[in-house]
Design a protein around this nucleic acid. Structure first.
Length: 465
DNA sequence: TTAGGGTTAG
């Protein structure tokens, strides 16, 4: 009897240890290694349990994709185990992370059909999903349902609500909700504060963000690297570079080691203002720390090399990305195309554009805009117009760039035509582009045309509102 | 097991 219990206990203990090992491998993105440990475990008699599979579902959803996570659910069933609420919540989180609203709803149906009742975590995720999908009204209905329903809301419920409000342009409402909750005894965590700081920074309310920063200190929490990076980014966006760099040294003096996020913020900002030497110093510093580079970090570095004209280095990084098994994203392609255009290498840009299309990024509006602008800058405005005509989607950047460049070539009538089609499609155009056309027409003797154009602009504006 | 910070163009 005792021997049996002891055996069962030691098996349980080894499964627990085994799961800790699987979890740490998964956390380090080492999914293949985790799978081989599972196989070794089975050989030694340690069978994976529901927790093991749940760890795998979460990891596959995070690092590979929802379908990969879902296939682990099948494997779990084949192994004779029944997925539980945690399995489904991980899949829901995976679907939400990828903004797959239909899949999220299907998964909800599936779990209910299988007799697994969604819990507050499931509803939190559903709410987050609607917010990510730009449906704050529906998310709000889910929120009310949680508040008035059978599940008690968790701190995450409120955090997701506040974050969703901020991300959907309702930062003031998020702040109101926050104050209201505080009056009802809600104790905010650092994440709550960071959500508000981020929301306020995004709408440029740096003063209010700093007040929240002060409140963090008063609440007994200590601002972390996320808090600092958020404010740092806001400083840089507002072109307050010196204050930004000061905050950066404060961050360092308080003992925070910069992570990839902080480095990208700083390097990106320095490159933008042309301080590439300083940016390169931060890059060297980052390399020394041994931070594992991800796609965003690579993109930041490639952008830096493109702006300094060191394309060989940029291509080396592209190779490195491939060797690492990472995949270039729309940012990488845009940065390369823009960089090549800016360096006057329009053939290289065209080649990269072809490659990008081949890789399935053919609807990359930003990259096409860069290419259109690049063609104009090397005097191939007619080719730029051809690309423009072939584009399925255009935006204010497309028009502003073409109008400016047409004016540069004194083709004011063509520029006026484009300007009007932009405004008539309900899009805005840079004020400077508008001025360039009107002034150009006037200076080249078409005063009457300029007057007419001004009236047409006014009417187009009224009609598009 | 969810929620907070980083990369592109006129």
């Amino acid at each position: 009897m005792w021997l049996k219990i002891e055996k069962r206990m030691s098996r349980r203990l080894s499964t627990r240890l085994f799961n800790v090992c699987i979890a740490s491998l998964c956390k380090a993105h080492k999914l293949e290694k985790a799978e081989s440990v599972i196989i070794d475990g089975i050989r030694l008699g340690v069978l994976p349990d529901v927790v093991t599979y749940n760890i795998l579902i979460d990891a596959y959803c995070r690092f590979i994709g929802l379908d990969a996570g879902y296939s682990v659910l099948h494997r779990m069933r084949e192994a004779g185990l029944t997925p539980d609420i945690i399995s489904y919540n991980s899949l829901l989180a995976g679907a939400t992370r990828n903004c797959l609203i239909d899949r999220t709803l299907d998964l909800f149906d599936e779990m209910i059909q299988r007799g697994i009742a969604p819990d507050v975590w499931s509803y939190n995720t559903l709410m987050h999903c609607f917010f990510k999908h730009g449906k704050p009204d529906v998310a709000n209905r889910v929120f009310k349902d949680i508040i008035h329903g059978e599940h008690s809301p968790s701190r995450a419920t409120f955090n997701i609500m506040m974050n969703g409000l901020c991300k959907n342009g309702y930062t003031d409402n998020a702040l109101m909700l926050f104050r209201n909750l505080q009056r009802h005894g809600f104790v905010p965590g650092l994440v709550t504060y960071n959500i508000l700081v981020s929301g306020l920074c995004k709408i440029g309310k740096l003063g209010s963000a700093r007040r929240i920063l002060k409140e963090i200190g008063e609440s007994g929490h200590v601002p972390n690297a996320i808090t600092y990076t958020t404010i740092l980014k806001c400083f840089f966006r507002k072109k307050k570079f010196l204050e930004g760099l000061e905050l950066l040294s404060e961050m360092k003096s308080k003992g925070y080691t910069y992570d990839g996020f902080a480095y990208c913020t700083v390097i990106g900002a320095l490159v933008k203002i042309g301080k590439v030497k300083e940016a390169a110093e931060y890059m060297m510093d980052m390399m020394k720390t041994g931070i594992e580079l991800d796609m965003v970090t690579y993109n930041t570095l490639i952008n830096m090399y493109c702006k300094t004209g060191e394309f060989e280095e940029a291509y080396k990084l592209l190779d490195e990305i491939e060797k690492k098994g990472l995949e270039c994203d729309r940012y990488t392609h845009t940065i390369m195309i823009d960089g090549l255009c800016k360096a006057g290498n329009i053939e290289g840009a065209a080649r990269h554009l072809k490659y990008m299309n081949m890789m399935g990024f053919d609807s990359n509006l930003v990259a096409l805009n860069c290419f259109v602008d690049g063609l104009c800058k090397v005097g191939q405005t007619d080719d730029a117009m051809k690309v423009y005509k072939s584009m399925e989607v255009r935006d204010s950047f497309t028009y502003s760039s073409l109008v400016h460049n047409l004016c540069r070539e004194r083709r004011y009538h063509s520029a006026a035509k484009l300007l009007l089609s932009c405004l008539r499609s309900g899009m805005k155009i840079l004020k400077s582009a508008q001025r360039a056309v009107l002034l150009g027409l006037r200076h080249s003797g078409f005063t009457g045309e300029a007057k007419k154009l001004k009236s047409k602009i006014r009417i187009a504006r009224i009609l598009s509102h």
